[in-house]
Structure formats: C-alpha cells, structure tokens
Design a protein around this nucleic acid. Sequence first.
DNA 1: GTGAAAGCGCTAACAT
DNA 2: ATGTTAGCGCTTTCAC
Lengths: 349, 349
Amino acid sequence: MTKIQKVADLAGVSTATVSRALAGKPSVSPTTRARVETAARELGYVVSASASSLASGKTRNVGVVVPFFDSWFYVSVLKGIQRALADAGYDLTLYHLDPHVGEGGLTQDNPRRRRLFDEFLRRGRVDALIAVSLELDQAELDSLTDIDKPVVGIGGPLPGIQTLSLDDHQVAKLAVEHLLALGHRDIAHIAGDQDFEIDFHLPAHRRQGWESALAGAGLAAHPLLLRTADFTIAGGYDTTLQLLGDPRVRPTAIFSASDEMAIGAMLAARDLGRSVPEDLSIIGIDGHELSGFFGLTTVDQFPEVQGRHAVEILLHQLDGDRPEPGNEDLPYELVVRKSTAPPPPAALT
Amino acid sequence: MTKIQKVADLAGVSTATVSRALAGKPSVSPTTRARVETAARELGYVVSASASSLASGKTRNVGVVVPFFDSWFYVSVLKGIQRALADAGYDLTLYHLDPHVGEGGLTQDNPRRRRLFDEFLRRGRVDALIAVSLELDQAELDSLTDIDKPVVGIGGPLPGIQTLSLDDHQVAKLAVEHLLALGHRDIAHIAGDQDFEIDFHLPAHRRQGWESALAGAGLAAHPLLLRTADFTIAGGYDTTLQLLGDPRVRPTAIFSASDEMAIGAMLAARDLGRSVPEDLSIIGIDGHELSGFFGLTTVDQFPEVQGRHAVEILLHQLDGDRPEPGNEDLPYELVVRKSTAPPPPAALT
DNA sequence: GTGAAAGCGCTAACAT
DNA sequence: ATGTTAGCGCTTTCAC
C-alpha cells in the first residue's frame, strides 16, 4: 500500500502538505498542489479511510436505514439517495430495519433494532443518517440525539429531527377531488392495512383525506366502500374482487392508497369484465414506474427526488449549519392518465 | 465519547484485555470477560470503527456493487446479501455502477466507473467485495486483484475471480423443453436486447438454450419467432403485440428471457383476446414475486439465495481460506403454474 | 504556505 | 490469562 510519506517524498514536501493539498485545503500554493497531485497519481495513492477518519473524525460515509426492499417506493428513494451521495463523494452504508414490531409497543425488544441503534450507529462509521419511513420510539430518538450526528428522516414528523414528509391528507384529498370533479359520488377507498400504520399512520391519513374530500362534497364515507389491503398488486386485486362483488355497494370509482394496489384493482376490474375507465375509474398514489404502462392516473410523489433532497439537506448540515429541526412538506402532482373518466351515465340516475 | 481506557479502568484490567474480551477472543478468562462486558455496557462503550480498522486492518464491512435498482432481480439479490451480512455482523456499503458503456469497449472512460475502482474501493473501507452482474475489463480485474481482497461475483465467469452463475443455456433449455413436452412446436422467444449483452451475454445464452432445445426436438428456430425486449413488463408487452400481430408466424407458446417480460406478454395476449394458456402458453425465467399472482410458469433462480450464498463464500474467504477462484453453478427450478398447457388442438393440424 | 510533531483510539506482538 | 508498548496512517495544531 502506498502511504502518504511516499507521496511527500516524491513531491518533495511534508506529509502535512500532502494531506492539505489532497483535501483541497486553500492554504496550499498552486505549484505545490500540482506537484502533490502528480506525485499521488503517479504512485496511485489513495488515502486510507480509517486513518483519515481516526485523525479527522470524519468518515465521508452516510448511513441509510430502510424498512423494505420489496417495495418500489423505498427502492426508488434509496436510488435517489445513492446517486446524490455518490455525486458528493460519499459512501452509503445500508441498513435494514424490519418495521414489524411486537404487540402494544413500537419497538419493544426487537433485538436487531436495538443492535442497530446501540452498536452499528455508534461505531462512528457514519457522519450522518437518513432514516426512511421509520417511526422511532423515545429511546431511539434519544439515542440519535445522543450520537449528535445530522439525521434526516423521510416521513415524519419526528420530534427533534429534521424530516421531509408528504402531506398524506392533502394528497389523498387531491386524488378524491379529481374523481369528484369528474362527477363521481360513489368513491371507494382501498386503504393500507393496520400493519402499515406504524409508518406514521400513512393509511389513516390517506383515509382521512378521502373522508374529508367526500365531506367537502357533502357526501358521507360509506363504511362498505372502505377496504384495506397490504400495498401489493396481489392485495389490491383481491380486495377489489371483494369490493366489486359486494352487491350492497356500487362504486363508480376507486381511490387506492398506492399505485401497486391500484394496478391490482385495474386487473381485478378487467377480470370482472368492468372496463376502466368507462365503467370504473381508478386512481392511485405514488407515481410508480408501471403507472404509465397501465395508464393509471395517480398523484406522483417523486420518490427519487425525495432521496436526493434528503441528501442535500444532510450535506448542508454536514457543512456546518444545523437548522432548527422541523418538518418540510414534499411536493406532489396529479398525473391524469387513462384510468379516470366521468362515471357511466347509468350511475347518475 | 467513551473510550477503551475508561472501560479498562472500570473493569480493573488493561485496554488490551478489554479489546480481547470484547472481540470475543478465547484467551480471556470467563470472569474477566464478564467484568469487561458489564463495564462496557454500563458505560455504553462501543469500539470506534476507524480506530479498530486502522489498528487491525479489518473493517467488518463489505462493498456491494449493483448495476440496477429498478429491477426486481437485482434488488432481491441485494436483499439476500444485506440480510446475510447483517446476520454476520457486517456492514454493507452500497455502490452502483451504471452498466451502460461507450461504443466498442466495455468501460472505456466511464468516469464514475474509474472512480469506483481507482478510489472508492482502494480507500480500504471494505474487507471484501461482491459484484453483481458486473462484467469487468482487464484493467478493472487487475485493479481488484491488486487490492488483494476477497471478491465474489454473481454472474460470471470472471477470470481470476470466484463467481456464482446461472447456467443460462441450461435454464433456457429446460424452459423450452417444458413447452416441447406439452406438445408445442411453434415456440417464440422474447430475448433480452443488445443492451444487456454486457451482462455476461445473458440474452445470447438464453437464446442459444432456446435454439438447442428446439434443435433437440428436430425443430428449427424460425427467425420471426425471435424477438427482443428490454427486460421490462412494458417491453415484453410491446414486443408480444408485434409478435402476435405478425401474420407470418403462429406461435402457440412464448418463452421469455425474464418473468417481467413474460408478464408483459401475458397482458398483451389478454388484450388481444388470446387466452393463456388455452390459446397461448407463456413461460419466463426468474421466480419473480409477481409470478405467483399472475400464475406464470417460470424457472426460478432464487435471487435472494444467490445473495446469501455469495456472502457465505465471502465470509469463508475472510476466515482464511482462499480457494482456487472458479465458477460455481447456481440452482434453478422449474415452477409450473397456470400459464402453460398443451397447445390448442387446431394448432396441431 | 509549509514543516514538525503530537495525537486520533485501538490492536497485536511480545512479555510474563 | 493478562499487561506493556509500539505502531496503524493520517490530520491538525503550533511554529515559523
């Protein structure tokens, strides 16, 4: 391995100067800098991450914690984070935290979780942390505050931590208002089920958005029009079969809490001989990569941009300024495609 | 920050003993070990990763390079890797390498790529590397050999490197033989297109498997029955529309080089009013999470297990034994579902 | 703008 | 089984 002393010798300067030059410090004369760079290149010198970290206290590495790998949304966020980090010359250490927790409490005695907070994050291997859709209990929050490293949460709010989050209530409301504007009045909702409530009550917020949009139009949320599924295509499919097969209700539109469930709903409708959007309108949330292919109307939440944005904030904090922790709303946008249209005339009677 | 000296003081031993005890070294008496562990817990002590790495030369961190985040297959492999690594107490640093390369050469002057090999992997931040579906040019191979750290490739073979790879030829042959056994003779193939050839010529190998299975049955591979797509559902859909709309051929079955394209094919067939499997059989490769939902017959290649297995091999190598680098074949399995059946009687005339 | 030298916090000989 | 001690390779005062 080539060490800094060799470079110093070749360049005819001290190791201190090599360190400064290679770190891009201003206090190095252009000539010296050039000589050092040439020497380093010639020798194929690369600083040792551990030696540098030990001496400087900085790792140029960011920890990222995600709850799932199976979901398009999380992987997209991760993708955005990784790209932005790589561009900034940072490494990314990936942690996974299973969100499934015990009864009653949020994290009670999940050993992997404890280990992540008590060990992995405290070894000083990262300069900062991005937590994606992670609801943290008080001990974990304390643990993070304790480490005293910048933390950005995607999904929030999280007390004492800088977070970015989607206003799920408004997003849902927008989706439902789109359907209302088309003339629909019997609008079903496929909500995320209980298991996902841990994620900042996302299912509840979207459901409430549905309810309040309906209320705004003077409509009640019929209990039978509210169904739940597990955020997968298969789950959306099954639930839609149930919904459309129930003779007690006749929805002309479905608002799904995610695009994947919405796609499942489209497939189910088709299998039941109902055409979309002629007989049934369907709208989702996400901006899933397949939404274009299926012609699904959706509210895009730009997951990749969310990841990028989290990194920007983090780098800022790493650059020195620690703003008041708070929550920032993420952008979203209605994307109208071919899965939504006015209800069939028959339904208007 | 709590340092090792404090623990040593509290436990009434030397720092060396603390280090040994916490590292689980055998040469520590049970009593001492217990005292050290208690002291460490009491103080909330965690070793500093950089100090430990600098002194020992080990990081307990593995680098993983993946070419895509958009594909279910790669994310599944990543998931397997991350789980296995976490279980072994290793961190995972994630790198992305865009496989799109310039004309003519494999990697010529892709700056991100150079940077990964010349810098990121040489900073000594990882103990070992897992390269997923990465075809490397000679300079890169040299670079890896140079670093002298264990490397395992998923997908191969890669000269001088331990690799795990699927026998694409045999897998494809198995898929086509399944169709032949059902009585099909006009079997189309949706191959991966040119852009994916960089990935160990996977499209070509699967295509050759198709051809050789046909040849084994005394059949020729009709050029019009060979189509290509981009490994996505949308791509498979479009290509299938072309294929089934072409009056010059009448395939009774489609062998798709991936499940995602196969799903696209199923959707296209349905949109054209062709029922699967009554009018048309479809088989894919992968074992995609959606294959069950769509009832797709496939050859499962257990991507998550691939990831796990790569980690096992790596940990072994990290434990000391460096076996002769070579290639190991990965397991696969035909999973028959509802998308394949005998051809319709009319086609037999 | 550059050099000398003192650590950063730990591990691994080497002793005992 | 445990202690002593010399680094690991770099960054950062502090001088000049």
